[in-house]
Design a protein around this nucleic acid. Sequence first.
DNA 1: TGGCAAGCGGACGAGATCGTCCATTTGACC
DNA 2: GGTCAAATGGACGATCTCGTCCGCTTGCCA
Lengths: 226, 226
Amino acid sequence: MGESSRIAGQDSLRADARRNRRRILSAARVVFAEHGIDAPMATVARRAGVGVATLYRRFPTRDALVRAAFAHQMDTCARALTEALADPDPWQGFQRLVETVCELQREERGFPAAFVAAFPDSTREHARLREQAERDFMTLVRRAQAAGALRADFHPSDFAVALLSHCGLVTALPDDRAASRRLVAYLLQSFRAEAAHGALPAPSALPLRSLPLAADGSQGQRPSRA
Amino acid sequence: MGESSRIAGQDSLRADARRNRRRILSAARVVFAEHGIDAPMATVARRAGVGVATLYRRFPTRDALVRAAFAHQMDTCARALTEALADPDPWQGFQRLVETVCELQREERGFPAAFVAAFPDSTREHARLREQAERDFMTLVRRAQAAGALRADFHPSDFAVALLSHCGLVTALPDDRAASRRLVAYLLQSFRAEAAHGALPAPSALPLRSLPLAADGSQGQRPSRA
DNA sequence: TGGCAAGCGGACGAGATCGTCCATTTGACC
DNA sequence: GGTCAAATGGACGATCTCGTCCGCTTGCCA
């Protein structure tokens, strides 16, 4: 990504350290899925077969661990937006975008909690990516509306409303895939132009920035001994 | 309610104890709203101006406190169902029911967390009430469908899906009333018969029993020294 | 193969929360 | 006013989690 200023990526780690790092991430996904995102760090360490110190050295904060553990999922979300924009049928693209993100929330235990967790925008570069993602999404919405498929009174924040409410549902019912699919189907139907009957209440002012729709590339690494 | 077997309701408390009990409940609502349902018990006690021992004597577990603190809201939910059933227009009743419960979730901070919290069905009487509530709701659904207002493929579990997803939304965005109203509007539109376009995925098998739609009357009281 | 810096893990002190115990206070009733 | 059980509140020990410190180990490179 042309970001050569980052110091000491995981490539420069010693072989055993790199192995442990992968173990930790794998363990974190399992533990976070099982006990929630607030599970004790020591549990993750034990599961990974490493000491707590090793865990803390690699991921100084819980946030860093969570980000790194679900980085792949976050990237999938970001990629889904790019793919949606590339779809010649904008409604198809929109629909696939919603379905992809929701499927990820549904299938990847622990990811929903990470999805709603507030991560500070660490880098200016990342903030830029988020703004770009927001613009991309607005373009997608405008196209789908112009095509007469997405209802005219759909507001970009409705996307956040859909994802956050779905997130809440799968958090409450982690095993109920039918419920999740059902909600997604209802929401997508209600977003279609022909579903518009009467006026909706005013849209939310919620910015989309908080959603993980931009690849962030942060891996929880940090130079040793600042 | 013809339930004379319960021992020592709050009426038999000494005057100071009754006063403290009210203070605790009031403090609990404030603290739970502010810091979530997992706020330290000591915080509630301090806010109420009582010692922790007093709090624990009245409400031996956190669940008991939560139940009692939001008993009024739970009852409002239960009453909403009764009123919905009494409405001559079943769709109107259904719509009002959804809106009432969601408004409660939206406006009463801390209630959403209590809404999804799992409380054991302590009494057989209460289990009976829940089953009755479930039957009532199914009657409402059937009537609204027969009237041609509610879509034929609406499944009772979709009600739980709606409430739980809305609950998740207001938990994620406690201050964003517009988002909450927007979701409710979308969901209600998609439940209308004329919104049905194409088949929905299979409904969830989730029982409605877990939702607080039956008045439970439990007040967190218990006879001292079993 | 030997040196050494990177890496490791367990112990540990700090801080938070839980739920109980008990000496003291206070309201209700005579 | 006097009696006494109900009620009170703060102290306390137990438990849990955090994040760091430090002596030992090990992979890497010459």
